[in-house]
């Protein structure tokens, strides 16, 4: 099959308490990609290879109940569980990223990527450098927040995006960055790609606009390549205008308002990026075919 004609392939993991896989898959389908939902064990046992896909996705939920801390058990499974060939899934993920492919985690998925050390991965050694812990409010909360995209971020997930409204639904979303060096490196390289803002669009540490008290008012991180991206809020929960709590008034004000939600733009971004990458990757090959 010609690579460019095939749809962008998103792999979405599920099982063991993950519970946002359906809307995650819907997001990719609405953005024009093909989404495959697969049980974690099929990947861990080597029945499904992540290398057959372009984007690897860790959805939200409560993996393994999160009783030892959000994302901890799943991160350890990825790091330590070996398949029949003696490889861990982390080995595969490193290779996957080195091949120029993309990894995304939302909420619990973001927690997994942070506990694993794939985010922010300043050292390149995939060891945990920051952590996510209990909200400053001490409680789980479901509420809508406003995000601002760091204009200096190099991540293709966020290209062309400026602000976004999305719901947060978590109890452990407070990003803690210990050490001024780590903090400085994250800021210098603009890895703090999303911040919580107030109604005026300025980053804020004021509750409830910043719902969890995160350092740098940070809602999401990327690694230095921009290929690995994670965030606490749920863009996959805002695929349609009608997910927004204020949809009815906004539609009254502007009957021609788009029926798409902010979250969908993020998925369109990455799908389009993978498509354009393929075209540039394939073109020289086609050229050589013509010349022979």
């Amino acid at each position: 099959m010609n690579d460019t004609s095939q749809k962008v392939q998103a792999l979405i993991l599920t099982g063991f308490g993950i519970n946002c896989e359906e809307e995650y898959a819907a997001a990719y389908r609405l953005a024009g990609a093909e989404a495959t939902i697969v049980h974690l064990n099929q990947v861990l046992h080597g029945h499904v290879s992540i290398h057959d896909y372009d984007i690897l996705n860790f959805p939200g939920g409560f993996s393994f109940g999160d009783d030892l801390g959000s994302g901890v058990v799943l991160a350890n499974k990825l790091r330590y569980r070996k398949n029949a060939e003696g490889r861990t899934l982390l080995d595969d993920i490193k290779e996957f990223v080195a091949n120029g492919k993309f990894v995304m985690g939302i909420c619990n998925g973001f927690q997994v990527l942070v506990k694993l050390g794939l985010l922010p991965n300043l050292s390149g050694n995939v060891t945990p450098e920051v952590t996510l812990t209990h909200n400053a409010s001490g409680r789980y909360e479901d509420r809508w927040v406003r995000l601002k995209v760091n204009p200096k971020s190099n991540s293709p997930f966020l290209k062309g995006l400026d602000t976004m409204e999305v719901p947060v639904r978590h109890g452990e979303g407070r990003l803690i960055i210990s050490g001024t060096d780590t903090l400085a490196h994250i800021e210098e390289q603009a890895l703090n790609c999303l911040s919580y803002t107030d109604f005026d669009g300025s980053p804020t540490d004021v509750y409830p606009h910043n719902p969890n008290g995160a350092d740098l008012n940070c809602a999401g991180l990327t690694d230095t390549t921009g290929q690995v991206f994670g965030l606490m809020p749920h863009p996959e929960a805002f695929l349609s205008l009608y997910n927004h709590p204020d949809w009815a008034r906004r539609k009254r004000l502007n009957p021609g308002l788009s029926e798409e939600g902010d979250g969908l733009r993020l998925f369109r971004n990455i799908v389009e990026h993978v498509q354009s990458q393929r075209q540039t990757a394939v073109s020289p090959q086609e050229a050589s075919q013509f010349s022979s």
Binding site: D142, R169, E236, A237, L239, N243, R249
Partner: peptide
């Protein structure tokens, strides 16, 4: 607010709106 009322991305009228 302590209940997730929008997981699955299908809730159109939630308990609190506006």
């Amino acid at each position: 607010r302590q209940y997730d009322h929008e997981v699955k991305g299908r809730t159109i009228i939630k308990p609190l709106m506006g």
